[in-house]
């Protein structure tokens, strides 16, 4: 464990909590892509199956359980509790365009052709594109509430910190997980455009981030 990975995990946790609290307190999920949240719940469900097969550390177990619980709670709030505020007209990204290539690729590119490894690889590739429906929804509505942008900021920060973590582990431990790194870099690139808008619009106190 290193400070970059720990900060990344904390940033990830903060992002998930920001979103969950926003929905819970505003009793609304307007502007939130339910599809992205379902994809994230799927990412955790397929990646954390090793909870039942290997014990890495208490931290590892606790964080996995927390991520699973919070992501399912978020999906529950969107599609059950506050479903009447769910903006289905704008949450129209075709997730099959993400799932088919990701499934195909995880069968082609993996470390071992075993169910657990293929599911892990699937979760890595899926996480890289899971935010697309949310980013698509923001471009479609042309704006994002500031809290949603903070959620996206911390999500992007988590990915940027993980890249720092991989640089650190490569130099300190000679560790290099090619699938995770390649997919993680692609995922982080998707946030770059958002980061620019976040800094130039949200942090300048505009409150909402409205796209040009």
């Amino acid at each position: 464990m290193n400070i970059f990975r720990l900060a990344g995990d904390v940033s990830h946790l903060v992002a998930i909590i920001i979103l969950l609290l926003k929905i819970w307190r505003s009793k609304s999920c307007a502007g939130i892509s339910g599809k992205s949240q379902v994809l994230f719940a799927l990412v955790f469900s397929t990646r954390y199956l090793d909870l039942f097969t290997v014990f890495v550390s208490v931290y590892n177990v606790v964080m996995k359980v927390v991520f699973l619980a919070l992501s399912y709670a978020t999906v529950y709030l969107i599609y059950m509790r506050f479903r009447n505020s769910y903006d289905s007209e704008n949450d129209t990204f075709r997730v099959e365009f993400l799932l088919v290539p990701v499934i195909g690729l995880s069968f082609l590119e993996n470390y071992a052709f075993t169910p657990l490894e293929i599911l892990w690889t699937f979760s890595i590739f899926l996480e890289a594109v899971a935010i697309m429906p949310q980013l698509f929804m923001i471009t479609k509505t042309g704006e994002a509430e500031s809290i949603t942008t903070h959620y996206l900021f911390f999500l992007g920060l988590y990915r940027a910190l993980y890249i720092a973590n991989w640089v650190w582990r490569y130099h300190m431990e000679g560790f290099f997980d090619q699938i995770a790194v390649v997919s993680g870099v692609v995922q982080t690139i998707f946030y770059c455009d958002f980061f620019y808008l976040y800094v130039t619009r949200v942090l300048r106190g505009k409150g909402k981030m409205s796209l040009p």
Binding site: R5, H12, N60, M63, K64, Y111, Y162, N165, D177, I179
Partner: peptide, 10 residues
């Protein structure tokens, strides 16, 4: 590859 021996990152 050693990665297959269990992934320690979240």
């Amino acid at each position: 590859a050693d990665e297959a021996a269990g992934h320690d990152e979240l």
